[in-house]
Design a protein around this nucleic acid. Structure first.
Lengths: 350, 350
DNA sequence: TTGAAAGCGCTACCAA
DNA sequence: TTGGTAGCGCTTTCAA
């Protein structure tokens, strides 16, 4: 059922007022109205400590600003200052889920406390140097780049354009940038080791078919492989789309696959798969053990309760502190932090 | 288990290069290197049609820009131009869920296609006129305000500062702004009417205890009330926190409440509640019918399958088109669109 | 205690 | 075909 926007009828305006050429008030307008110079306006509104302005003048200026509805022009201000307090965060192309969203929210809040303006930029298109240039046009003081949206050349472009800190949040460090290394192999490793410790030897690994997710699914798979290397256990990739039919198809050939354990990429795919397996008459965990990841609430609500790999993201304020440090001390060596904590939460499905 | 950032040791740099005072290249630098004037640089790099520049000069300019890694300064440019293409979208204080996130993603993409730069601004704090002023400092050409973060005075501030379109996305229209009316009473109304049609007469309505959600839960409750007015059915508010203990407590007194149907606010709370009720030995839908909202995938995976109210948000490109129209034609009357489609998806839980 | 003026980086008009 | 230059809104010396 496609949705169509429905306009609600409005009472016609008396006579479409011809858009009064209301130009935006500037500090010069305030100065004029208050009968002072622009400099004085700036002093008053910015509470410049170095200069003494009489209380009477202050009041006049403030009243004038209020009356005109004056709002300073951030671009002009930072043009003059030679730098901004904008921290740019490109929006990842793929939806990142509640875990990451929570992290970003906390981060924004923490940066706000440090008086930075966080700007999330919905970039379109080719993730090459072009993209980095588009970001650089905004002259951010710092850039936080999720995933693998940028290479060393991109970092160089940003640094040349004045960014005092570039921080990547992803699997690989990038030359010249600070890195919050989120190594998802550890997630897979924990899952694989856990399944092995539960006596499982023929392990399936769900690989979401949704585009973009391979950035995470591939390292997780590799982690499972690594955990099982040399144990004689087998690893089988299981492509799976996030829909019931795809899950039913996979479940239908489950017995033929002969798997006794599966790492389902994350809790949502685990729920999808578990349901399909149960509907196909398979018992969990007796026939097949299932492990998810992300430790979402829904895992606790499933029956059997879902075993999962809990993922610990860094605290937003820690990253905010890193950014602030890097901005104040731009000469420092790029820092690299391993920030993806992982731990198995054993429940009933494994 | 609190997480601690662990720094990975780095090989020490040969001799900490003393941060070459590499100043950011400007168009003047490009002009100097190419041996032309700044005007010519501007003409070449912006492909100004009105002016003819020899191919040789073009090449020299482009080469110089490339060599210096020149990136134009967006703030300076829009200062000069007198307007920007920035569309500002304040981030809502509360996490909005996958439905809304998908809508915003689509919207950002659509606006990008129309050559706007979408900026999500993580505002902190008091949602008064102060907030509107902070947004106005960025001189956006349009502002899309979710929820009830702004009043008529805020709209006035934004318009005075040059915003050619202010669009609210929320339950109530705001004077002077375009409105995408998202009336959640309709969601509750559908749920209430559905439960009534299934023969339920003692209806519970889950009210999430998480702060901020009352913006949605209250209208949904009112919708249920409205649907049942005059039918003799009763409506009972059920405060519920999004955790298992809270759900278990509610389930424990369920028989005493004597309810035969419940609208659980959304699918996630429905899953939480349904699980608690089942664990308490109640049969669904025989003893109590459960209806969620949002039509998430997880509802289809529950057993019994969850009945839900499917919510249709407007297409991102429709809103993008509205914004573009309003920007080009700022004199027009504020438009009001009812955009929250709702329809019951009847499955097994009701 | 206040004002005049320079200049941040850029584009667009007018001259050459 | 190109260059000179004014000026967008703001802050900050330097003078008065």
């Amino acid at each position: 059922m496609p949705y169509v926007m429905v306009q609600i009828p409005q009472p016609a305006a008396p006579a479409s007022t011809p858009a009064p050429r209301h130009s935006v008030p500037t500090s010069a307008d305030v100065a004029r109205l208050a009968g002072v110079s622009r400099a004085t306006v700036s002093y008053v509104l910015n509470d410049t400590g170095a200069v003494r302005i009489s209380e009477a003048t202050r009041r006049r200026v403030r009243a004038a600003a209020e009356e005109l509805g004056y709002v300073p022009h951030a671009a002009a201000r930072s043009l003059r200052a030679g730098h901004s307090r904008v921290v740019l965060m490109p929006t990842p192309a793929i939806p990142m889920g509640p875990l990451y969203n929570g992290f970003v929210n906390e981060l924004q809040w923490a940066l706000g406390r440090l008086d930075y303006t966080v700007v999330q930029h919905a970039g379109r298109g080719p993730r090459g140097e072009e993209t980095a240039r588009a970001w650089a046009e905004l002259r951010p003081v710092a850039v936080l780049v999720p995933g693998s949206m940028i290479g060393p050349e991109g970092v160089a472009v940003l640094r040349r354009s004045g960014a005092r800190a570039v921080v990547t949040l992803g699997p690989e460090p990038v030359d010249g940038a600070h890195a919050l290394l989120m190594d998802h192999r550890g997630v897979g490793h924990h899952a694989g080791a856990h399944l092995h410790s539960r006596g499982r030897r023929r392990i399936g690994v769900v690989m979401p078919e949704e585009p973009g997710l391979d950035v995470f699914s591939r390292p997780r798979l590799e982690g499972v492989r690594r955990a099982l290397r040399g144990t004689g256990a087998t690893v089988t990739e299981l492509p799976l789309g996030y829909d019931e039919e795809s899950a039913a198809r996979l479940a239908a050939r489950w017995r033929a696959l002969g798997l006794d354990g599966v790492f389902a990429y994350n809790d949502e795919y685990a729920m999808l798969l578990m349901r399909a397996l149960q509907d196909a008459g398979l018992r969990i965990p007796e026939d097949t053990a299932v492990v998810g990841a992300d430790d979402l609430m829904l895992g606790r609500l499933l029956r059997p309760r879902l075993s999962t790999v809990h993922i610990d993201l860094p605290a937003g304020r820690d990253l905010a502190a890193l950014v602030d440090r890097a901005v104040r001390e731009p000469g420092g060596e790029p820092e690299r932090h391993a920030v993806l904590g992982a731990a198995v939460v054993h429940r009933e499905s494994s």
